[in-house]
Design a binder for these strands. Structure first.
Length: 123
DNA sequence: CCTATGACGGATG
DNA sequence: GCATCCGCCATAG
């Protein structure tokens, strides 16, 4: 296949039809917000994991955008894959301080996911 | 309509 | 660990 493969890939481009059957009446954005709210204090997750848990596999970027413009969400608990802070400058500093303030420990530049990653219940 | 950009992620070298 | 590329998507110009 020499042609460029612009389509397809390992990602399901279509959102999961439903979660448990009743979240379908909530907007994708609402599902993402609800998912983020479930991350308990002292625990963290990743953009990709949040997207999947919200039934939007592959939409990690949308999760990031939402976090960026929304208020009232525990934004500091969402990290990049591997537990790395994806913010820059002062924002990155604040995120780290907030996380450490709630007991999250780092290993160099990343969070010790082994000990702090919150596992969303399987769907 | 097209291109660039961005709190992303994964594969590859 | 770093650099590059590709895939996906909403937004801005």
């Amino acid at each position: 296949m020499a042609a460029k493969k612009r389509q397809s890939s390992r990602f399901a481009r279509v959102p999961q039809p439903r979660l448990d059957g009743k979240a379908s009446r909530i907007s994708p954005e609402g599902r993402i917000r609800a998912t983020i709210q479930k991350i308990p204090r002292g625990k963290v997750s990743t953009y990709g994991a949040v997207a999947r848990a919200a039934g939007l596999a592959g939409h990690s970027r949308q999760v990031a955008r939402l976090l960026h413009r929304s208020i009232g969400l525990p934004w500091q608990r969402v990290l990049g894959a591997g537990g790395e802070i994806k913010l820059r400058g002062d924002h990155a500093i604040e995120q780290r301080l907030r996380l450490e303030a709630e007991g999250v420990r780092f290993r160099g530049r990343r969070v010790d996911m082994k000990a702090h990653e919150f596992m969303f219940p399987r769907r």
